[in-house]
Amino acid sequence: MAEKPSADLGEPPSQIDPWSVKAATDEQGNALAFDCEAISQKWNTKLIDKGLLECFERVTGHRPHRWLRRGLFFSHRDFNLILDYYEQGKGFFLYTGRGPSAGTRYLLKWLQDVFDVPLVVMLTDNEKALFRDNLTFEEVMEYSRENAKDIIALGFDVKKTFIYSDLKFVGNGGGHFSLNAWEFSKIVNFDQVRGAFGFDNSTKTGRIFFPNLQCVAAFATSYPFIWGDDPLSDFRPAKTAAIPCLIPCAIDQDPYFRRATTRYACASHKNKINMRTFSGGQETLELHRELGGNPDVDVAYQYLTVKSFQEARAKVTDEITQAFIRSHKLEWAGNPTPLNARSRNRNPKPLLTAREQKGRRARASGPLSGQRRRGRRGRARRHPRRRSD
């Protein structure tokens, strides 16, 4: 049974889960628009409002992306905390997946450029093989390699970006990733994932375990080599575990990271912070398989069809791809002027308007200015009179 917005929010029943997004229908069977505000209330998220966008611009010095201003990304969970972290000069990283959340990749390049932070991209080839019976594991690994080239062609910096195939990384060099997945599976019971993902007694066990992998992909300790930690160590540093993650994703991916936020805080991992949007998928998984996405509303498709992208894609060789998908330490700068550094400045320059500066100069050179200064100095030198005996 999938998550459904409740009737008391004024929205007819709709179905949203990682594999099926189905709008409510009216009495004539026509699909109704999703009520973003009702969905946000139901899933305990917050709308991306004017105040948050103003905070974003103040902290980063960048005007919010047009897709944020126009509401294509409409909801978030704790994005304000990421802005607080960034303002204080603390680190975080970006994460997304090529698969269910493919409709959000287009914003990642802009976010990485603004924040100057590491990016991790999970190629969910295992999910494709598990949920599409007509595909073999060998086929989906080839697809994931081509998907990696699509992502690289967007202009990501290999020094700040790690792209990996689930099937190749988790079982080969992803020891801490596997450890996180097993630990996560130990504290989440079947009733919880059944309600969130629509599983039943006929669901194959591979599909049931997969959400554990998707959730821990947002844990910094799953990638020890990025932070300079020892991937062969039996222990995951608490300092790395405290690094938060910003996850731009489609609304249908929320069950993964809502589960990660609420169930793994006890394991000393910070809350995962999400931004949500709608992609150009069909109303149901069956229709999406039959008809494909809707390019008229899928902004990612519009972005990828630009001629310049096609030219960039043709230049991505196997050697370039290998540089992105091998395990490697990343390099980034983060906030160049964090709040604590600005507060330590001994000679801060106040930001005054021309009128304020003119008024300050006039007061300093006015006819009473010298008298005021002399008066203050005179009073400072006065001493109480001594009593004569």
Rank of each mutant, 00 (worst) to 15 (best):
D150P: 01
D166T: 12
N189P: 09
H176D: 08
F162H: 09
K239N: 02
Q214C: 03
A218D: 04
P255F: 03
T262H: 12
K204V: 06
F210R: 07
I187N: 06
L232R: 13
N180S: 10
V170S: 11
F197K: 07
T262Y: 12
L167H: 05
F177N: 01
G195T: 05
E183I: 13
A217V: 01
P244Q: 03
N189R: 14
G171P: 05
F169A: 07
R259N: 14
T205P: 10
D252P: 04
G228T: 04
I151N: 01
H269D: 07
R259K: 14
D230P: 02
D150L: 01
K270A: 15
F257A: 00
K270D: 04
W182P: 01
F197R: 08
K270W: 09
V216Y: 01
P248Y: 04
S233L: 06
F156K: 00
G155Q: 04
K159R: 14
V188E: 04
N189D: 14
S202Q: 13
L213N: 02
T221A: 15
F162N: 06
A267T: 13
S233E: 05
F225M: 11
N180F: 02
R258N: 15
A153Y: 05
L179H: 11
A148S: 09
S165Q: 12
P211E: 06
K168V: 12
P231R: 07
K160D: 03
T161D: 03
D252Q: 08
I152E: 01
F169P: 08
N189F: 10
Q214R: 03
K168H: 13
V170R: 08
K149F: 00
L154W: 00
I226F: 05
P237D: 02
A265I: 09
L232Q: 13
K186M: 14
D234G: 10
G228P: 00
C249K: 12
S185M: 15
S202C: 08
L246P: 02
P244T: 05
I208L: 11
P211W: 00
A148R: 01
D229F: 03
